[in-house]
């Protein structure tokens, strides 16, 4: 009786596992947050596997940038994943993407013994230069006009790079060719130009 009950139980759990796996094949449209919620509900590490695989390539790139060795970078990503699996079982993380990036960077800095560069792990770390603008009070046309006027107030290098990149959709290399700037300069002018533009527009909005 005992063995037949055990067999039925295993059969039941296997059928459940099969239906779960079929369900998980349709995960492409599921957000990171939803995957984490599913993990919390099911306590099934497969959900974490799906989530982490989304960032394998990017994390490998980040580790490669800092460690400059393919094998070390691979090992680092595996370590980051192990840490992530352990931590995600204990703590709740709101923004897994930025959290994983912070863990990977810190892991690389630890490996390089450059502890001064360590950044505090906060899943709310802003990856993006999030908009400081609130366009709700303005119509689109008005805000775009403000933006157009603000471009003129940027310094020459930033104005050139922002115009070529955002308005003419030129690539980094095309901008380098036409301006003579280095890649680092082009990236910096675009990033700082965008930030300054947002500040300028915010300033104008508060005045009007």
């Amino acid at each position: 009786m005992h063995s037949s009950y055990g067999f039925l139980q295993i059969l039941h759990l296997s059928i459940n596992a099969y239906f779960n796996s079929v369900q998980k094949e349709n995960y492409t449209n599921i957000s990171d947050q939803e995957l984490l919620e599913n993990f919390k509900r099911d306590q099934d590490n497969l959900w974490l596997g799906i989530l982490l695989q989304r960032y394998t390539l990017l994390l490998l790139g980040v580790c490669m940038k800092y460690l400059k060795d393919e094998e070390l970078a691979k090992d680092a990503v595996q370590q980051v994943f192990l840490k992530a699996i352990t931590e995600l079982q204990k703590y709740s993380v709101e923004y897994p993407k930025s959290w994983l990036y912070t863990i990977a960077r810190n892991h690389c800095f630890m490996q390089l013994r450059d502890k001064t560069q360590l950044i505090s792990i906060s899943d709310k770390l802003n990856l993006r230069d999030d908009s400081i603008l609130d366009f709700t009070a303005f119509d689109k046309e008005q805000s775009l006009t403000l933006l157009e006027n603000s471009i003129k107030e940027l310094n020459t290098a930033q104005k050139t790079c922002v115009t070529l990149f955002y308005l003419q959709k030129k690539s980094y290399s095309e901008i380098m060719d036409s301006t003579g700037f280095s890649l680092l300069q082009v990236k910096s002018y675009i990033q700082n130009g965008k930030r300054n533009l947002k500040l300028l527009v915010a300033q104008k909005m508060s005045q009007s």
Binding site: L57, L58, L59, L60, G61, V62, C63, M64, K65, Y66, K68, E70, A73, K97, S98, Y101, R105, L127, R128, D129, F165, S171, Y172, K187, I190, Q191, K194
Partner: peptide, 22 residues
């Protein structure tokens, strides 16, 4: 991709690192 690179450090670091692969 380049727009994301200018917006996100994660994407920028990742692309810079991936370009170092043989």
């Amino acid at each position: 991709i380049e727009n994301q690179m200018s917006d996100e450090d994660f994407m920028n670091d990742a692309v810079e690192g991936l370009q170092h692969f043989k």
